[in-house]
Computed example of a mutant assay.
Amino acid sequence: MDYTDKVEDTFFESMNGKYIRALITAEDWDTVRNAAYDSTSTPSAVIGRVEAGVESFVDPNATPDGRPGAICQYWFGLDNLEKFEVELSYRIRQDILVKPFTKMFNVTNNPEGYIEMMRNVGHCGDGFEWEINEYNREMINVPIAVPDFQIESKFGYADGIMGGNYWYFCETKEAVLEAGKLIMDEIMDVPGVIAPFGVCSAASKPETNYPWIGPTSNHPYCPSLKNKLGEESKVPNGVNYIPEIVLNSVNQKQLNLAIKNSVDAILEVPGVLRISAGNFGGKLGDNTTNLLDILK
Results as ranks from 00 to 15, higher is better:
157 Y>S: 02
172 T>H: 08
168 Y>A: 07
236 P>T: 12
202 A>S: 13
208 T>F: 04
197 F>N: 07
185 D>C: 09
219 H>S: 12
177 L>P: 00
220 P>K: 03
212 W>M: 06
213 I>A: 05
188 M>Y: 08
194 I>T: 13
169 F>G: 00
199 V>H: 01
206 P>N: 06
221 Y>S: 04
225 L>A: 14
221 Y>F: 09
192 G>I: 04
164 G>D: 05
183 I>L: 04
232 E>Q: 12
226 K>T: 15
153 S>N: 15
183 I>Y: 01
161 I>H: 01
174 E>S: 13
197 F>C: 12
153 S>M: 14
227 N>E: 15
234 K>H: 08
171 E>K: 11
170 C>E: 03
171 E>Q: 13
224 S>P: 03
216 T>E: 08
176 V>M: 06
234 K>Q: 14
181 K>R: 05
229 L>H: 12
160 G>A: 13
210 Y>G: 02
160 G>P: 02
217 S>V: 14
232 E>K: 11
169 F>W: 10
162 M>T: 14
222 C>G: 09
183 I>E: 01
215 P>F: 05
154 K>D: 01
163 G>R: 01
166 Y>M: 08
170 C>K: 02
221 Y>H: 08
167 W>P: 00
181 K>M: 06
236 P>Q: 07
197 F>P: 01
205 K>H: 09
194 I>R: 00
159 D>C: 10
208 T>L: 05
224 S>L: 14
193 V>I: 10
213 I>M: 04
229 L>K: 06
234 K>Y: 04
194 I>A: 02
187 I>G: 01
170 C>Y: 03
212 W>F: 07
235 V>H: 05
190 V>G: 03
214 G>K: 04
175 A>S: 15
218 N>E: 11
175 A>C: 14
198 G>L: 04
166 Y>R: 03
176 V>Y: 02
178 E>S: 15
230 G>I: 11
212 W>E: 12
